[in-house]
Design a protein around this nucleic acid. Structure first.
Lengths: 229, 229
DNA sequence: CGGCGTTTTGAGATATCTCAATGGGAGTGG
DNA sequence: CCACTCCCATTGAGATATCTCAAAACGCCG
């Protein structure tokens, strides 16, 4: 599971011509950065790897997780397009990142990023705010996992997914990950996630379509109530 | 529980003469910042309060937590001397902070801090790294709460507390909080925490002294094994 | 010494887990 | 184009870790 994937950083296009000035913004840099395609189930990086790059998700979904020695796994976050992954202060990754679907990421040298930030308070503050938001999301998940029942956890997950990914006005969300991924995010088992989804369906709060990967949140208000905020 | 404490920011000494240069370090500023004494069980700030100040714990222990509408509470972290609390990007606190024992904090205006950071990449990076570490700690707790059994959670808590607070070579840790606080950190009940501690005592892995507030980690190796890393 | 807050201990209830079997959908190869 | 296979999701039944409710013990402070 923690096997090394030899293709991690083999992309020779990573060293690209960059704008001349040191004042290039993070977005500038990233839009010039090389794209890496990630197959479903492929790792972007693994715990223990050298932290050479920071990635921005361009397409698809990346599960960021930590494993215990005995194989139990806690997913920390599902990263969606626009999200940065691989930030940190150590020179090794402490988490692993695996695509749940085919995905694309842009790769930015982490030493470059750090050097840029050393001379650019605006960039450094942007990184700070980015991590603050990640922290807020992680805390929110911690509350969910630490205090809520199974049905509350699943409801909270669906509501959060809707807020994060649904087009304005749409009640449809796509579960672009397996039940086991949702289970490992919420601290439940696959079976409990499955049973809880069918319970929500029986309560007419959601509809499940297309082989279980699409969910319509028919009664978003009640779902939100169930999630306890 | 979320009642406003009128004494939050009543300290008129907060506006202090500061070093002339804008290059004052965070530590400089903080060592000149006003100290606020916090009684046991008093709040430093509550969810929803204006985020006017960032605090550095000088003495005592501060529980940082979030409550659900129905009163359930998840403690996010126990802040010990040296820790910063109240950082964030919003202008309201999204968490509450309450002293578990009598404590002291230094207060730094958050707008001042932010203005300093806007022109000082070094400071901004320091804030970034500080939040990164907080993020790492929160993730670690998330793994504990999401994946570990009661005995593993309590073991992990004791080991983490030891790493964070014990003098070199000492096997003693002080539980400067009630069982209910530990329970709300670990996503357990008071009773389960208590039972688990006595189970660890019966296994000769810990000794409990002084009315349950001091614990000797006699067999730190086994405790660490139990915690699963 | 009395009273209050807290911890410990016990016994029974229950939500979730575990183990096991079935079912469905997607992709592959004949 | 169909059958086969594999992976994943669902459903069921029984096991169990943890919770809930209740009572007793402890320690601290006035």
């Amino acid at each position: 599971m923690l096997a090394v994937h030899p293709d991690y950083a083999s992309n020779s296009k990573l060293a690209r011509p960059l704008p001349p000035s040191g004042a290039a913004t993070l977005d500038d840099r990233l839009s010039h950065a090389a794209v890496r395609r990630i197959a479903a189930k492929e790792h972007v990086f693994c715990e223990g790897d050298a932290r050479d790059y920071v990635f921005r998700v361009e397409d698809g979904v990346i599960a960021v997780y930590k494993t215990l020695p005995d194989g139990r796994r806690q997913i920390i976050d599902f990263a969606y397009p626009g999200d940065l992954i691989g930030l940190g202060v150590l020179d090794e990754h402490v988490l692993s990142a695996q695509a749940t679907t085919a995905a694309k990421v842009r790769c930015l040298s982490s030493t470059t990023l750090e050097r840029m930030a050393e001379g650019d308070a605006t960039l450094a503050l942007k990184l700070y705010k980015s991590v603050c938001q990640e922290l807020a999301a992680t805390r929110s998940l911690l509350v969910t996992v630490g205090q809520r029942s199974a049905i509350e956890r699943v409801a909270a997950f669906l509501v959060a997914l809707h807020r994060r990914t649904a087009a304005d006005g749409s009640l449809m969300v796509t579960l672009a990950m397996r039940r086991s991924d949702i289970a490992d995010l919420l601290g439940l088992t696959i079976e409990t996630v499955s049973r809880t989804l069918t319970k929500l369906r029986n309560m007419s709060i959601i509809e499940i379509e297309q082989g279980g990967t699409r969910v319509v949140l028919c009664d978003l208000a009640r779902l939100s109530d169930l999630s306890n905020e």
